[in-house]
Amino acid sequence: MPANRFNGFTDYGVGIGLRIPHYQHIFEQKPVVDWFEIISENYMVEGGRPLHVLDRILEQYRVVQHGVSMYFGSAEPLNREHLRRLKNLVRRTKTPWLTDHLCWGSVDGRYTHDLLPMPYTFEAARLTAEKIRQVQDFVEIPVAVENVSSYAEFHLSEMTEWEFLNEVVEQADCGILLDVNNIYVSSRNHGFNPLEYVNSVPAERVAQIHIAGHSEFKRYTLDTHDHPVIEPVWQLYARAIERCGPTATLLEWDDNIPSFDEVHREALKANRFLHKQEDLLPSFPSTTEPILEEATR
C-alpha cells in the first residue's frame, strides 16, 4: 500500500517542510531526514540564491513539491506561465509526485493567495477534475490533491466535503494528499465527525499525509501551522495509517518555527504509528505494487 501509482511507487518515510530558518542547520549538520517538502512557488524563479539552495538540498535529500496556487477549483483556465515554470522545477527536483490544494483562489486573473473552500457541487467537481487532469497531463507525473481547512460552507453545496473529494479524485483519477489536521480543523468549524471523513477516503489513492498543529479560538479553529500536533489529530493519523498502510508523511510548521531538531522530533513521532502498522503487515508482499516498483527501476 505505501508505494502506489499516485506517489510514483515510492516509499518515503517521514519528512518535514524545507524552511529558510533551517537552511544553515541543514547545510552545517547534514541531519538525516527521509525527505523534504518544498513550496514549489518559492523556487519557480529564474536563478539566484533560491535555486542555488535548492540544488544543494537536492544533492543530499529527496524532495517532493507542494504547490499553493494552482487553484484547481478556480473557474478560470489554468495559468500557462505557472505551468511552464512548474514543469521546469519538476525537471530540476525530479519529484516523484506533486501536490496542490483542492480549492480555488483566483478570479479574472486576480489572486487572493488564499486557499478558498469549494462549493461541493457536481458541477464544481467536474470542472476541478478536468483541471487536475490538464495539470497531470502537462507535468507528466502523478498529482495528488490536498483537502484544505475551511471556515465557511456554501448554500450551494450538494454533498459533504469527503463526498466531493471522492467525486473529484475519481473523475480526475488522481491521488490524495490527506491532511488529517485540516480534517480536524474543518470538523471543528463545521461540526462533522472527522473519523467519518477519514473512513470515507479512498485509501488506495492516498499518496501522502500531512500532519500539523493549529490554533483553537473561542468560536472557531484556525489552521495556523504554528504548534505541535495535538492528540486528536494523531488519532486521525493513526486511523489513516491503519486504512492506507505506512504512507509518506510530512509535518507542516510554518509560523513561530522552532529549531530544526524540534520540528524533526515532532515529525518523527509519526513513526510510532507507521512502525506499528509495519509490524502488522505480513512478511510477504500484500499487493503487487512492490513488484511494480522493482520493475520500474
Binding site: A75, W104, V107, R110, P119, T121, E123, A124, L156
Partner: peptide, 16 residues
C-alpha cells in the same frame, strides 16, 4: 463552464 460556480467565486472574491 459553470455560470453558478463563476458567479459564486466572483462574489466571494469581491467580498474577500
Amino acid at each position: 463552464m459553470s455560470g453558478v460556480l463563476v458567479e459564486l467565486q466572483k462574489r466571494m472574491a469581491a467580498a474577500v
